[in-house]
Design a protein around this nucleic acid. Structure first.
Length: 425
RNA sequence: GGAGAGAUGGCUGAGUGGCCGAAAGCGAUCGCCUGCUAAGCGAUUGUACGCCCCAAAAGGUGUACCGGGGGUUCGAAUCCCCCUCUCUCCGCCA
């Protein structure tokens, strides 16, 4: 959410920036609603002020045994009018709020203009594509041949886009989770948290999933609860409506969670394999920072995610999303794309974003400056560190051998109970 | 699932219709005092929104907020209704 005052005072800038994102928002309607709200507010507050002072006089008169019936009658009509205006105000504020909630964030000045992922500049590459003296297989074939991924069982138990991991496959998933968490907590200074996997609608609104993206979520029938699409939601909402101490910033959290996404609108896309699942595991990093240091922290957070891939020895590139490819809440995003030989493609494995104060405003997350005592919104950031299922894909496809087995990356061996190669039994 | 108790400012805790944005204490900040520390004295100590002023900040002013929502009343922290959460006991349960 952008600050209403900011939109009001920078209407042309906002319009231009939203056009760069490819978003058509009716800012004329915003201006009209905002004007209407303030007009009503002024009138109702004037009446309330009158009522307050007259009510005091009524009290004073009654105390002295004087008659007050004349002004009581007059205030009766004033109160009726206040009630009418209150209703109108509530209606207007609800509409204005709804409109404001659907306006996306403004891209940072360093974000290049573009319309889609073809325009995303590559800012870094690490490693190189592995060479195979055979035709590398896709992970779904590797996984099924090794009997560690069972897509049919997942489909039977639940449905499409659910997968059963078995034996060394299940262990690999768990090993990656622990490897990532350990690196971020012991080397990168993150505090591990473990959160609920369902959250209420206030939390979803705070991070921007609601009200605009409800169709992407799974809702628990008969409740106000939703399955989280990412740990970003519960972790960011840890501090909803908090006023933090400046000396505690930046706060850095890391959380493992299962993630649930409805994937509405992606029918027919990535239907095979682990790439696009309704349920997947992710290790997520979240930071709360002072405004002036959030972009430094974005670089650090991105580097923290990159280090996982480096330690695993997986070739990747880092792209900076252009204005047209940026997510709703984000001011700037780096995507890490891991090389997947079985698919002959780079695939997104992490997304690291600075939301600036966009989420903090929605969620009421602020901090007090030590010097001035002033209260300001924090900046929130998050990034996958990493998407675990896709990391399994990357390991299987990059470390596959001619005989169909898969070597375990050196960094992962301490987590694999002595297994250094997954082979067909 | 059943029965009961509770939710007030950074914290503790008073407050059953007007004098309450809210006593008192604690904490915090600033100042004074004191060889240092401790103690003591004084002042300050919420947030949001609107309007005025303004380049901006500061300032002035109004309104709202005592878990959330609705109602009664000229007037609600206080009375009534609904909801949420917390705690205690019983039942059930991984």
């Amino acid at each position: 959410m952008l600050e209403i005052k900011f939109i009001r005072e920078n209407i042309d800038l906002v319009r231009t920036k939203l056009e760069e994102r490819g978003d058509a928002i009716d800012l004329g309607r915003f201006v009209a609603m905002d004007r209407k709200r303030r007009d009503i507010l002024q009138e109702v507050e004037t009446l309330r002020s009158e009522r307050n002072s007259v009510s005091k006089e009524i009290g004073a008169r009654k105390k002295n045994g004087q008659d007050a019936s004349d002004i009581i009658a007059r205030m009766g009509t004033v109160s009726t009018r206040i009630k009418e205006l209150d209703d109108a105000l509530k209606e207007t504020e609800a509409q204005l709020g709804e409109l404001t909630m659907t306006i996306p964030n403004i891209p940072h000045e360093s974000v290049v203009r573009g319309t889609g992922d073809d325009d995303n500049p590559v800012v870094r590459e690490w490693g190189e594509k592995p060479r195979f003296d055979f035709d590398p297989k896709a992970h779904w074939d590797i996984g099924e041949d090794l009997n560690i991924l069972d897509f049919a069982a997942g489909a039977k138990i639940t449905g499409a886009r659910f997968t059963l991991y078995r034996g060394a496959g299940a262990l690999l998933e768990r090993a990656l989770v622990n490897f990532m968490l350990d690196l971020h907590t012991t080397r990168h200074g993150y505090t591990e948290v473990f959160t609920p996997f369902m959250v209420n609608s206030d939390s979803m609104t705070g991070t921007g999933q609601l009200p605009k993206f409800e169709e992407d979520l799974f809702k628990v029938a008969g409740t106000d609860y939703y399955l989280i699409p990412t740990a970003e939601v519960p972790v960011t909402n840890i501090h909803r409506d908090d006023i933090l101490d400046e000396k505690d910033l930046p706060l850095s959290y890391v959380a493992y969670s299962a993630c649930f996404r409805a994937e509405a609108g992606s029918y027919g896309k990535d239907t095979r394999g682990l790439i696009r699942q309704h349920q997947f595991n992710k290790v997520e990093m979240v930071k709360f920072t002072k405004p002036e240091e959030s972009y430094d922290q974005l670089e650090k957070l991105t580097a923290n995610a990159e280090e996982i891939l480096e330690k695993l020895g997986i070739h990747f590139r880092t792209v900076s999303l252009c204005t047209g490819d940026l997510g709703f809440s984000s001011a700037k995003t780096y995507d890490l794309e891991a090389w997947m030989p079985g698919q002959d493609a780079y695939r997104e494995i992490s997304s690291c974003s600075n939301f600036e104060a966009f989420q903090a405003r929605r969620a009421g997350i602020r901090f007090r400056r030590g010097e001035s005592g002033k209260i300001e919104y924090v900046h929130t950031l998050n990034g996958s560190g990493l998407a675990v299922g896709r990391t399994v894909v990357a390991v299987l496809e990059n470390y596959q051998q001619k005989d169909g087995s898969v070597l375990i990356p050196e960094a992962l061996k301490p987590y694999m109970n002595g297994i250094d190669r997954i082979a067909r039994k």
